[in-house]
């Protein structure tokens, strides 16, 4: 599996996806194809290694979810991206495909408040259960006080 083969395979199967770059292949998808593309990448492209998943807050344009997966044997890396749109904070979870997405998506929920549908155990991971707000959103000030310790 070379990068060119991967690119044509993605182009044949997912016509709605934009493919850019070379290392890694950056694939921008609509939200409803997020989970099915991950399944396709794992079985067809051989990207079995789950590197990380996270999100970016683009203020008015809404949140963007990013995940990166690798094929360790052939050196094909895919960065998956999807825009959730303004005001939307739900996204399909990748846990049914990759077990490594479990903690990564919990962290993403903790920091951005994105609800991953289909996640078996979605709760805060880094901050305490009583924390208010989602710190990595651009609307959250870095020095927001938290009583009683300030």
């Amino acid at each position: 599996m070379t990068r060119e083969q991967a690119r044509t395979l993605i182009g044949e199967r997912y016509s709605g996806a934009q493919v850019e770059g070379d290392t890694p292949l950056v694939v921008t998808l609509p939200v409803d194809q997020w989970l099915s593309f991950a399944q396709f990448a794992k079985t067809t492209l051989g990207c079995r290694f789950f590197s990380f998943s996270s999100a970016v807050d683009w203020k008015e344009q809404g949140l963007e979810v990013v995940a990166r997966i690798d094929n360790l044997n052939d050196g094909v890396s895919v960065t998956m991206k999807t825009r959730l749109g303004p005001g939307v904070s739900t996204c399909p979870s990748l846990v049914p495909v990759y077990r490594g997405a479990d903690w990564m998506e919990r962290e993403c929920y903790d920091m951005f408040g994105i609800h991953f549908e289909g996640h078996p155990d979605l709760r805060r991971i880094l901050l305490g259960d009583d924390w208010e707000g989602h710190p990595l959103l651009k609307s959250y000030a870095v020095d927001t006080p938290h009583p009683p310790y300030r």
Partner: peptide, 21 residues
Amino acid sequence: RELAEDVGIAGPLLRGSGIAF
């Protein structure tokens, strides 16, 4: 080996599970 790739562990753990990466 399968769990190692799926969870995305790396470094000596991955190599200890038989993946030369």
